[in-house]
Computed example of a mutant assay.
Amino acid sequence: MNLANKITLARIFLVPVVMIFLLFQFDIGEIQMGAVKLTTGELIATFIFVLAALTDGVDGYIARRKKMVTNLGKFLDPLADKLLVTAALISLVEMQRLEAWIAIVIISREFAVTGLRTIAVAEGHVIAASPLGKLKTFIQIIAIVSLMLNNFPFSSIQFPFSMIATWLAVIITILSGLDYFYKNRKIVTFGNS
C-alpha cells in the first residue's frame, strides 16, 4: 500500500461524504447566486467532489513519478472514479437535476468496462485507463460540477452550459466504452458461454 494507492482510497472514502452533503437538507441556509439558489450543503458537496476528483490526477502523478505504479493502483484508480461519478449521478437524479436515462447510460458503460476488466484479470491482463477514458472522466466531472451548482454562473446569462456538458459527457462516455471493447476484443470470446 503505497502513497498513491492511499490517495486513491481517500477518494473512495469521500464518496459517501459528498452524498451526505448533497442529499440531506442542512439548516445552514441558502446562498443566492444570481438566479440560482444553492444550499450550503450543495456548495460543501461540490467542493468535496472537486477535491476528490483532483486526487485522481495527484495519485496518478505520484505513481508515475515515484515509480509506484502497481496492479492494485491500476484496479483501484478507475474503480474510485466510477464510484465517485456513479454516486454523484444518482444523487443528481434524486435532486431532479439529471434525467435518469442519462445516468443509466453512463453507469451502464462503467459496469460494462468494469466487467471487461474483470475478464481481463481472469485472463492475466490488466487494462489501464486509456486517454479517451481519462477524457471521459474529466468531461463527466465538469458536467457533474455544473449540475451540482445548478448551472451557476451560466444561469444568469441563460447559457445552457450544464446541458451541453452533460450531452458531451454522454457522447464521450459511449465512445470511450466502445473504444475499450474494440481495443480489447481479443480478451473476450463472444462465441463461448
Score class of each variant (00 low, 15 high):
N71V: 06
A120M: 13
N150G: 06
I107E: 12
L92Q: 12
V113R: 00
P153E: 12
A122V: 03
T189W: 15
S156R: 12
I174H: 00
M68L: 11
M163V: 13
A165L: 12
M148P: 03
G60R: 07
L116R: 09
A143S: 14
K136Y: 06
L98W: 04
R185G: 05
F154V: 00
A53K: 06
D81C: 03
V121Q: 11
D56V: 04
V105Q: 09
G133T: 05
D81Q: 06
R185I: 12
I106H: 01
N184F: 14
L98A: 04
I127D: 05
K66V: 05
A88H: 05
D179T: 01
E94Q: 15
K136A: 02
A87P: 10
K186D: 14
K67W: 11
I144C: 05
L72M: 14
F75W: 07
L147Q: 08
L178C: 12
L135Y: 03
Q96V: 05
K82T: 01
W167T: 05
T114H: 02
P153T: 13
K82E: 05
V121S: 02
I139G: 00
I164T: 09
A122H: 09
I119T: 08
I127V: 09
G73D: 08
V170N: 01
L116T: 10
T86N: 00
V188M: 14
I106Q: 05
R117S: 02
N150C: 03
T166C: 09
L54C: 06
V85H: 04
N71L: 08
F152K: 04
P131M: 03
K66A: 08
M95F: 12
I104N: 02
Q96F: 13
I142S: 10
V188N: 07
L178A: 09
V93R: 10
P78H: 01
V113L: 04
M163W: 13
F152I: 03
A112G: 08
I171R: 02
I106M: 15
Y182C: 02
R109T: 01
A120Y: 08
S108E: 10
V113A: 02
Q140F: 10
T166H: 01
L83Q: 03
